[in-house]
C-alpha cells in the first residue's frame, strides 16, 4: 500500500515519518516516533489516555489520522519536563499521589496543561468538567483534581511574582 509522507513538529522538533493512511496519530507517535508515553486505552475517544496537544488544543490522538498531522504542532508528554526539570503539574501529581498504575497519567497531564494554559484559576467544578473525558480506574479522581488545583495555585503565585 502507498504510504503517506508526513512532516510535523513534535515537542518543538521537526519530524518526518511514513505512515499508512489508516493509521492514527497515536499509532504514529508510538510505533514510528517511539514516543510511547502517550497511551492507548480504548481507541475510540472515551478514555482520554491518548490525549496530546495539537496546535494548542487538547485532542484524542486515537481519533486523528496520522496523515492529518502534516504541518501541525504537536505536544506530547515527552516534551512536558524541560531539561530534566519536571513541569509543575508533574511535581504536584507526585506530591499529591495523583497516580497509581499511571496509565491515565500522561493523558491527564496533557489535558491539565491545556486547561491551565487557558485558565490558571479554574474552580474545582471547571477542572472536573474539563477532565471528564479522562478516565482513571485507580485514583478516584480527588487526588488528581487536588494536584491540578494546587499546580494552578503555584502557577498563579509564580506569575504574580510571590
Amino acid at each position: 500500500m502507498k504510504k503517506v509522507h508526513v512532516s510535523t513538529t513534535i515537542n518543538g522538533t521537526l519530524k518526518e515519518f511514513l505512515c499508512d493512511t489508516r493509521e492514527t496519530l497515536l499509532d504514529a507517535l508510538r510505533d514510528h516516533m517511539l514516543l510511547t508515553g502517550t497511551k492507548e486505552g480504548c481507541g475510540t475517544g472515551d478514555c482520554g489516555s491518548c490525549s496530546v496537544i495539537f496546535d494548542g488544543d487538547v485532542i484524542c490522538s486515537c481519533l486523528t489520522l496520522a496523515a492529518e498531522a502534516e504541518g501541525r504542532n504537536i505536544e506530547t508528554i515527552e516534551g512536558m519536563a524541560e531539561g530534566g526539570e519536571l513541569h509543575v503539574l508533574q511535581k504536584k501529581f507526585l506530591e499529591h499521589a495523583a497516580l497509581q498504575c499511571g496509565i491515565c497519567t500522561p493523558g491527564i497531564l496533557m489535558a491539565s496543561k491545556a486547561l491551565l494554559k487557558k485558565n490558571n484559576n479554574p474552580s474545582e467544578e471547571e477542572a472536573r468538567f474539563w477532565l471528564a473525558g479522562n478516565l482513571c480506574r485507580c485514583t478516584g479522581y480527588d487526588k488528581i483534581i487536588n494536584a491540578v488545583l494546587d499546580a494552578a495555585r503555584e502557577i498563579r503565585e509564580e506569575s504574580d511574582g510571590v
Binding site: 475510540t44 475517544g45 486515537c62 481519533l63 492529518e68
Partner: peptide
C-alpha cells in the same frame, strides 16, 4: 468526508465503514 473525525475514526477502527478514500476538509 473527514471533518473532526470523531465519528469517522471510531467507524474506521471498528470496521463499520471501509472507505476507499477519505477527504479531509479542514
Amino acid at each position: 468526508i473527514l471533518a473532526g473525525g470523531t465519528d469517522v475514526l471510531v467507524q474506521l477502527r471498528t470496521d463499520i465503514v471501509r472507505p476507499e478514500m477519505v477527504m479531509n476538509i479542514k
